[in-house]
């Protein structure tokens, strides 16, 4: 093998090894690198520690409490659901059937108390006319 071919083999092997190692590490680290717990993982999540819970806001689940600032809703990932309580200002894009990431704590008994809500946007972008034809997006209960 000429030195040039040797260097080429070495360089290509290095790239393959680097990318392969990264992909393996990424799949192994998926729990550690997760930005939030999904409702299905709620059982394994620590109680009373600051964590994040992410999923879809279950349709029809958003209720406003009598105090006027607290809302209750359910977060679902299709496998499990977690009831969430939150007092404060919700982001503009927070709505039912849409993604949400709640920052807060799991409480004993299975619920989640959020002190901040982030709206999660999905990858679909469309004008309102198209969206209206595809599905009625509900705004949150006023």
């Amino acid at each position: 093998m000429s030195p040039k071919r040797q260097r080429m083999t070495l360089a290509l092997l290095a790239v393959v090894a680097i990318v392969g190692a990264v992909l393996l590490a990424m799949s192994a680290l998926s729990d550690e690198a997760a930005f939030f717990y999904a409702p299905a993982d709620a059982a394994s999540a620590p109680v009373d520690k600051p964590v994040r819970l992410g999923g879809m806001v279950a349709p029809g689940s958003v209720k406003r409490m009598a105090d006027g600032v607290t809302i209750a809703f359910t977060v679902t990932d299709g496998k499990a659901t977690v009831p969430v309580r939150f007092s404060g200002i919700v982001p503009d894009l927070f709505r039912e059937n849409s993604g949400v990431v709640a920052e807060g704590k799991f409480v004993a008994g299975g619920g989640f108390v959020a002190d901040n809500l982030l709206a999660k946007h999905d990858e679909r972008y469309m004008p309102p006319q198209v969206a209206g034809k595809m599905h009625k997006s509900e705004s949150i209960a006023q």
């Binding site: 680097i18 930005f35 990858e123």
Partner: peptide, 26 residues
């Protein structure tokens, strides 16, 4: 420059393999 390519699959697949706030590829 070669070693830095390690980041490219992380950026590409982070939204597919990990739970992230950023949405998946449109």
């Amino acid at each position: 420059g070669i070693a830095g390519t390690a980041l490219l699959p992380v950026i590409r697949y982070s939204v597919l393999w990990w739970y992230t706030l950023h949405q998946g590829p449109s």
